[in-house]
């Protein structure tokens, strides 16, 4: 099933506020083999935890199965480093949509903002929605 082209430009509701904690950052860093101590910089790809949450809500909304999604591209632009204590939300919007070879190529942008409303990180993702094989 192709994704509806009228989605382009649509913004989805912000994710539930997420409090960044030392424990979560330590767990995330440990998953990449890094021993993280309080005060160390938060790993650069940590905002994906929020962006992924926003993407899951988006996929649910458009009724796309996660297992049919392959990641095409990801970019992060940081306004400031994330730190434990931050309370963040991600707001996803659909930037582009095209079809290539039966696959949907979905461009999304998620703005990650803090509890003052300031943008902390903008991250864009290209999601490849793989078409089901024709039997």
């Amino acid at each position: 099933m192709a994704v509806d082209g009228s989605l382009v430009g649509r913004a989805f509701p912000p994710t539930r506020p997420y409090r960044v904690t030392d424990e979560k950052v330590r767990e995330f860093a440990a998953a990449t083999g890094v021993s993280w101590e309080s005060g160390d910089p938060v790993p650069a790809t940590f905002p994906i935890v929020l962006a992924f949450d926003a993407m899951n809500a988006f996929l649910d909304d458009v009724q796309v199965e996660l297992s049919r999604i392959v990641h095409g591209e990801q970019k992060f632009s940081y306004a400031r480093p994330i730190a434990p204590g931050d309370v963040l939300v991600a707001t996803l919007s659909v930037a582009s949509l095209r079809q290539i070879g039966g696959n949907d190529i979905i461009g999304t942008v998620s703005e990650i903002t803090d509890d003052s409303g300031a943008v902390v990180c903008t991250t864009s993702a290209t999601l490849v929605h793989r078409a089901a094989e024709v039997a």
Binding site: A44, V70, G72, Q74, K75, F76, Y78, P81
Partner: peptide, 14 residues
């Protein structure tokens, strides 16, 4: 541990 300002990549091969 320098502060990262921009970071991006395409996933070209699994």
């Amino acid at each position: 541990g320098a502060e990262v300002v921009d970071f991006g990549a395409k996933f070209t091969n699994p």
